[in-house]
Amino acid sequence: MSLFLLACLGWAAVNYNGQGEVPDYYYWTSFFTNAPYFALGLIVWCIYRLTPASFARPIGYFTLAAGLAGLIYMFQFGPVLDDAQKMYKPVPLEFVLGWGAASASLALSQALRPVSLLYNSATRFLGKISYSLYLMHPFLIYKTSLTRWAATLSDNPDLVVPVVCAITLAVTIPVATVIYYAVEVPFMRFARHLTKPDPRNTALQQLAS
């Protein structure tokens, strides 16, 4: 809980009073703006580790319902950020906590009681490449004119986000897959090699004991 409060203070340090002239998307992409998401993820992990097996099923279903309800609420009633908000204005804390809490509830539900709709081979694959996906998608969204181009396709502004999401996923999933297998997997193998106990040292320790 102290980590979560510290993350919220980090958000406040960046967003509460504003920073005057800032680069485009400064608030939106700041680590401290997004720190509550990471804190919620750690809280979910701790809850998962501390939950007894006998309570996993009911808590899993409860958090699944809570997460879905939270997503629906944020879609219907949550803060709406326009282009100016994303580029130049501080990000509301209720936006971060609303989406973060709903997503954290869903993550906890699938850790405790996975359902096939959310936990399957496709979602597990996306989970594998998720870090590369996370690193790649901002370049496409913020460093290109994708959003402006999507806005020209229709007079309905509600179609902009789905179009941007679809194109972003279509482009970044193949790129993230290549990065995962070409960069992440070799480095994970190398890390396991570095941390693997030396059998000679193990044998010497056994002899010494």
Rank of each mutant, 00 (worst) to 15 (best):
P162A: 06
D83M: 10
L112W: 02
G67Q: 02
S103D: 06
F190H: 12
L6Q: 02
T33A: 04
R49C: 08
V171N: 11
S130D: 10
R148Y: 09
Q205H: 09
V183W: 14
Y119K: 10
S154A: 02
A84T: 13
R192M: 10
G70Y: 04
Q19G: 06
G60P: 07
V115F: 10
P162S: 04
H137D: 11
L97V: 11
Q205I: 09
P36K: 04
I173G: 09
A166D: 03
S54M: 08
R113N: 13
L42R: 03
T202N: 08
Y134K: 01
A102G: 11
A65V: 13
L118F: 14
G18M: 01
S2M: 10
Y16M: 12
L133M: 13
I47S: 03
T63P: 04
H193L: 09
N120K: 04
L64G: 00
A56W: 03
T177Q: 12
Q206P: 00
Y27R: 01
Y61H: 14
A39I: 07
Y134W: 03
L135Q: 00
P186H: 08
L133A: 07
V185L: 14
R124L: 11
V96R: 08
S30T: 00
T168Q: 08
Q206R: 13
R57P: 00
K143A: 12
F31G: 10
Y180C: 07
D82V: 06
P186C: 08
D82E: 10
F62G: 14
V160I: 15
Y61E: 12
I141K: 01
W99F: 14
Y119F: 13
W28Y: 15
C165T: 11
L106C: 03
S30L: 00
F32R: 01
L126Q: 04
L146H: 02
P92W: 00
L50S: 12
F77V: 05
R124K: 12
M87W: 00
R148C: 00
V183E: 05
Y48V: 02
T51D: 05
F32C: 04
I167G: 12
W45T: 14
W149V: 07
Y37L: 09
S116V: 09
T168A: 09
K89W: 13
W11Y: 06
L3E: 13
T168V: 08
D198N: 15
A107N: 10
T29L: 15
Y27E: 01
A69Y: 02
C46I: 12
Y88R: 07
Y16N: 01
Y37N: 09
R124D: 06
L81Q: 00
V91E: 05
F38R: 02
Q76T: 11
K196G: 04
V14T: 02
I47D: 03
S121E: 12
W149F: 13
Y61K: 13
L9E: 09
L97E: 09
A208H: 13
E184T: 04
T29S: 15
I72L: 15
F139P: 01
T177G: 14
L97W: 06
A151D: 10
N156W: 07
M188R: 15
V171Q: 12
R189F: 10
F31C: 06
S103R: 05
F125N: 01
F125A: 01
K89E: 15
V80N: 12
A102K: 11
K86G: 11
T51K: 05
D24L: 11
